Amino acid sequence: MPRVARRRNPEIPHHVMCRSITEVTLFKNDSDKIKYLQLMALYCKKLKCSILAYCLMDNHVHIQLDPQGCDISKYMHGLNLCYAQYYNRKYQRHGPVFQGRFISKVIDEDEYNLIVSAYIHNNPKNLPDYSDCVDTYRFSSYGIYLGIHHDYYGMLNTDFILSQFSNNYDTAKTVYTDFVSSCNNVTQKQKQFEIIDAYVSKDPYEYRSERYIYYRDLTPRTVIETVAEVFGIGSPDFIKIKYSHSVSSFKAISIFLMRCLCDYSYKDICKEIGNLTLSEVAKLSGKGFTLINTDPKYQKLLAQLFERIRAA
Rank of each mutant, 00 (worst) to 15 (best):
V4P: 06
R8E: 15
E11P: 03
P13M: 02
H14R: 03
H14D: 11
V16K: 09
V16T: 13
C18V: 13
R19G: 10
V24P: 02
Q38M: 09
L39V: 02
Y43R: 12
K45Y: 07
K48C: 05
K48R: 12
C49S: 14
I51Y: 04
A53E: 09
Y54W: 10
L56K: 06
D58V: 01
N59V: 07
V61F: 04
L65W: 09
D66C: 14
I72Q: 05
S73C: 11
M76E: 11
M76C: 13
G78T: 09
Y83F: 13
A84C: 05
A84D: 04
Q85N: 06
N88S: 05
P96D: 07
V97W: 07
K105N: 01
K105A: 02
K105H: 00
D108P: 04
D110G: 00
E111N: 01
S117N: 15
A118V: 14
A118S: 15
K125E: 12
K125Y: 11
N126W: 02
S131L: 10
C133D: 15
R138I: 02
R138L: 14
F139T: 08
S140V: 10
I144T: 14
I144M: 15
L146V: 06
G147I: 06
Y152M: 11
M155D: 07
T158K: 13
F160S: 10
S163N: 07
Q164S: 02
T171Q: 15
T171V: 11
A172H: 05
T174C: 03
T177I: 06
F179W: 04
N185L: 11
N185S: 12
Q188V: 12
E194R: 03
E194C: 02
I195H: 08
V200R: 03
S201L: 01
S201C: 01
Y205D: 04
Y207C: 05
Y207R: 09
Y212F: 09
I213E: 05
Y214E: 03
Y214L: 06
Y215V: 08
Y215C: 07
P220G: 01
P220L: 00
V223W: 00
T226N: 08
V227R: 02
F231L: 08
I233G: 12
P236H: 11
I241K: 15
S244G: 11
H245M: 05
S248E: 03
S249G: 07
S249K: 13
I255M: 02
I255K: 05
M258N: 06
D268P: 13
I273D: 14
L276I: 09
T277N: 07
T277K: 09
E280V: 03
E280T: 14
L284Q: 14
S285I: 07
F289G: 01
I292G: 03
P296T: 14
K297C: 09
Q299S: 12
K300R: 09
F306M: 10
E307L: 08
R308D: 10
